[in-house]
Design a protein around this nucleic acid. Structure first.
Lengths: 190, 190
DNA sequence: TTATGCATGTAACTCGTTACATGATTAA
DNA sequence: TTAATCATGTAACGAGTTACATGCATAA
């Protein structure tokens, strides 16, 4: 279900073709919130059209079909957003999973991953800060408009990750041999 | 593939049955990193056993079967962790998606969601801070041991979300009518 | 004219969820 | 004795990925 609402939300921002949507997922929203490939998007657009939640507004070169979110689509999206999120449906985030599994590594390797994490998160934050400044200018507002809100979300979570990675590395460096207790405990007994 | 490594990592922490693993996913790791139900876990454990990445260490009452990560399993997990993450495989996080779609809502509803988000994130952070303090005591260390690292990750990302939600609400409150430009633009034209 | 990018489509497969199903053990 | 929890299993379905496939448009 989430895919459907992600598409409606993107179409609300601007009418788009399946190709446009696929790029939006690949470039922005897929990195934090929800990802989807074109092979999922095209069939879903047809289903959404059948349900009158989107409509075709243009057919261009190379079979390009541009869709727009209908009033019904907006209503459906809004009622989904206001309903309490299903308790079920946990998170799938490979990056975070990797951080949870750090304890499986030896000290030096764990530190290496933390260094990569810290640098990657810092780079992403810097990139988004640039985007945010551009949005502030373009929208002539402190908040950067609706897109500015999501950009700030990205900036803040990347900064949190960066700071966590720095802190975690300090802890490991400070603990010396204690780090390895975990795997030693389980693999050496018996 | 990620499920397989999540299981190996959990088994490294302690030998467990499928039931134990299902609880760990439901209670902890599933909320941030990776989720899985028992119907995925049991078959995967059998596949892992066949591949010698885990082994049975005990069979108890009610058919309870306890598995442990083997040396081979640890090696597989380590090589996966050190390999650069597949560029493919985006994030699936319904909570974050909802935040990305806030612009579809009217001002008051958006503020309502932000309030819920802020309160929910704060509550989670407080809960994890309690866990972290308990871990510090139990492990007699500032860092709380390997589990302390992941707990801190949770605390820091929830705090970041909480602060973002507070900031976002302020922006919307400060902007007055400007908020609604987005949907008006696309639905009222033509 | 040739490479690159635009634009869509679908089949086969794997992954993940929901629902159904069974039975043992324990605490009230 | 009965409800709750422990503990597993699987079938059917839906979601998501990978691979294969086609062809137009544009710029070098």
């Amino acid at each position: 279900m989430a895919l459907r609402y992600a598409i409606l939300g993107l179409l609300l921002d601007r009418p788009s073709s399946g190709y446009d949507l696929a790029r939006a997922f690949a470039e922005v929203i897929g990195a934090y919130a929800w990802d989807a490939g074109h092979s999922q998007i095209y069939p879903e657009l047809r289903r959404l059209e059948e349900a009158s939640l989107v409509e075709v507004v243009a057919r261009g070169a190379r079979g390009r079909t541009t869709y727009r979110c209908t009033d019904q689509g907006l209503a459906a999206l809004r009622s989904w957003l206001m309903a309490p999120p299903a308790s079920t449906g946990g998170v799938k985030n490979e990056h975070v999973l990797r951080l949870f599994l750090l304890a499986a590594l030896e000290r030096e390797d764990a530190l290496e991953i933390l260094r990569r994490t810290q640098e990657g998160a810092a780079a992403q934050a810097v990139h988004l800060e640039g985007e945010f400044a551009a949005l502030q200018e373009r929208t002539n507002s402190r908040s950067g408009g609706p897109l500015g809100l999501t950009t700030q979300y990205g900036i803040r979570t990347f900064r949190a990750t960066e700071e966590w990675a720095r802190w975690a590395a300090e802890q490991i460096e400070g603990e010396g041999a204690a780090w390895q207790t975990l795997d030693v405990k389980n693999l050496d007994e018996d």
